[in-house]
Write a protein that binds this DNA or RNA. Structure first.
Lengths: 383, 383
DNA sequence: CTGTGGGCAACGTGCCGACAA
DNA sequence: TTGTCGGCACGTTGCCCACAG
């Protein structure tokens, strides 16, 4: 077993992972997508899957599994958070025996919590860290304003239980909260640059915790490719899943929320709700949640422009990213061109702005692309 | 293909890899050992193979392959050298068609070359780098001794073609060669500490090259385990080899000379010479080459104490590390307890010091462990 | 011949309020 | 409210030689 590493503080892990990330409950049923896992490997190695990967004809595009264990970890070098999940494929008959009680663990951000994106001044060697007023008042212990200037020593634990000590002072004209002594060693130790974020939490016992989120644009851990060829990694992912499916035995999956393009272990209930109760059709309008540069959530609107296999030769009929989509705002072009059904929230099409002729078309059989002329005319009309 | 990275300078690569490392020639026939490859993964991840790995009954413990390509690389973060080999399993009948012309590429260290282990003074922030006199005279361009003091600017390329600039000066009482300006940025950029080594080469065109060798004791790249479970990595290695063997198709192997406990791609001619022309038996005396702390070669003497499978359940009859050995010098205990036949040089047993009764024992059938009492008495007698 | 340490100058780090966005 | 800057003190870096192993 690889259980010799201790799990890290769950609240801090989720704060570092960001508001969009939730993990399925231990014991519940989930759907595991080898394709998604492979995409995470591709994102980590910067190598796409090429033609050398053998087919695993007995490996389905999705495996219903029981989630036996979730361990939360953080990379020792980079502090990147990741989750180690123990999965076990379940047989068809077992699937109906027990349905999971809920959809996901609490992914709510802690209450006494703040997250600030670092400025050039925060990360320069010239000075310290400027703490937003409200943040300092919410999560730091109150200062003694009788002292001149008011100051105290802060101690905060990171994901590895390393304690960082900062001098917290309230000074300047106008007055502001600053972290001075101790700040620069933290910045250089964690190799923070302007654009990265720092977050502080006050937990139940009043202890301070702190974590970091690197800027979305920054390359996360570029897997040192010196150990294993990316081919072998992709094969390893598929062969491990195929072996587990064939023998109904447990296997290990590492999920990197901030590297992986999408979650690939989905609560079964969420999956079923999306697949069985959503009438998806070309032209359907939907919303989808993304994390902004400022680490907040934002919904973007889009339209389904096609339904079909992402990789028809290897994974025919897979539900993984089988929806082609377009986005209303063409400006920020970092949004995916393909999504999966469970990632989106359908929006009841406002009949007012779309002629009934298009909106009421009979649903096309899934997996088949129809003539897109109608759709194009509709979209043009919408502009 | 993963050929988008450029190969690095071969001479410099071999200098960094060390004198013990040689690579098979491109085009030649080699023997590939999945077990050895797996051991490299274990060394990189610090995770031993556990029981969760499926068996690949169709995968032999050794594959005869043609070596189609060798690309020399270096890790961008750590400068660790590694080789990417393209292998293709060959059929039984093909094996005899062409025998490789030679045993290995030139692994001789370059002529105009020196390697110095860094002292505390070399790596401290207090000063520069003290260049051994002979080394400076052999590889650096000659100084103009009319100048007072004699000094010049040195430019040297590393494995990534990054140019480092140093001020080379000859001063002090007594006079000595020093690198001053530019040295400390190099030390901190490469994260060198006392005990690591730096090497300089003057190539054919008079250009200076430089590289590093980290101290043997220092942990090399600890694979950030956040991407792939070590189980999946081991499975990936085995499944990739099994697939290639089944389809006679090419596959990629990454060899890390300084991380891997042993080479696992061996020239076929070397393998055959060792296996067919060596009468191995318990009690046999041999020598084996190791790299010392000072980056030089040294031979150690040992005795074969047993012959048998390293992993009888998974790899029965494998020649990989099937010799159990003891070493004459018990002091330095970092030498392996098991070796493979092609790693050692048999020494004709001096009959003078061992009673003929032991030395002339009939050879035991390989793979079977005999009664060790005779051997033990012999070894005791030798002390 | 070369590793370490004292002396000393130059430079960078880091704390302060001023100012403005 | 908070990001950046000039001012300034102090600690570190880095070049020099002396000395000794």
């Amino acid at each position: 077993m690889e259980g010799d590493r201790r799990s890290v503080n769950s609240e801090l892990w989720h704060a570092c992972a960001g508001p969009r990330i939730s993990l399925p409950s231990v014991g519940s049923l989930v759907v595991y997508f080898p394709q998604g896992h492979s995409e995470q490997v591709a994102a980590s190695t910067l190598k796409e899957v090429d033609g050398h990967i053998p087919n695993y004809p007995n490996l389905q595009s999705q495996l219903v599994c029981q989630l036996h264990n979730v361990a939360l970890h953080a990379d020792l070098e980079t502090d990147e958070v990741f989750a180690q999940m123990t999965l076990q494929p379940v047989n068809e008959q077992e699937k109906e025996l027990f349905l999971p009680p809920d959809v996901g663990t609490q992914n709510r951000q802690p209450n006494d919590f703040f997250c600030k994106t670092l400025t050039a001044s925060d990360t320069s060697t010239h000075g310290g860290f400027s703490v937003p007023r409200r943040a300092a008042e919410k999560v730091f212990p109150p200062l003694d304003f009788n002292k001149q200037p008011p100051a105290q020593e802060l101690r905060a634990k990171d994901l590895h239980d390393h304690v960082w000590v900062f001098r917290h002072i309230y000074r300047g004209q106008p007055k502001r909260h600053l972290l001075t002594t101790g700040w620069s060693v933290f910045v250089s130790a964690k190799r923070l640059v302007a654009g990265d974020s720092v977050l502080f939490i006050r937990d139940d016992k009043g202890q301070l915790l702190l974590g970091i989120r690197r800027a979305n644009s920054r390359q996360q851990t570029v897997m040192p490719s010196s150990v294993l060829s990316s081919d072998s990694m992709h094969i390893g992912v598929l062969a491990a899943a195929a072996h587990a499916a064939a023998t109904s035995s447990r296997f290990q999956v590492f999920y990197n929320p901030r590297t992986s393009p999408s979650e690939f272990v989905i609560p079964l209930s969420k999956y079923r709700k999306a697949v069985h109760f959503t009438q998806v059709s070309v032209g359907m309008r939907f919303r989808m949640v993304f994390e902004t540069e400022e680490s907040t959530l934002r919904r973007y609107m889009g339209t389904v422009t096609g339904i079909g296999d992402l990789d028809g030769s290897r994974w025919p009929g897979s539900k993984w990213r089988n929806l082609e989509v377009g986005w209303d705002e063409s400006s920020a072009g970092e949004r995916p061109r393909r999504v999966s059904l469970w990632e989106i929230e359908p929006v009841s099409t406002p009949f007012l702005i779309c002629p009934p002729a298009f909106a009421l078309r009979p649903k096309r059989p899934p997996g088949l692309l129809g003539d897109d002329n109608d759709l194009k005319r509709c979209l043009t009309w919408l502009r």
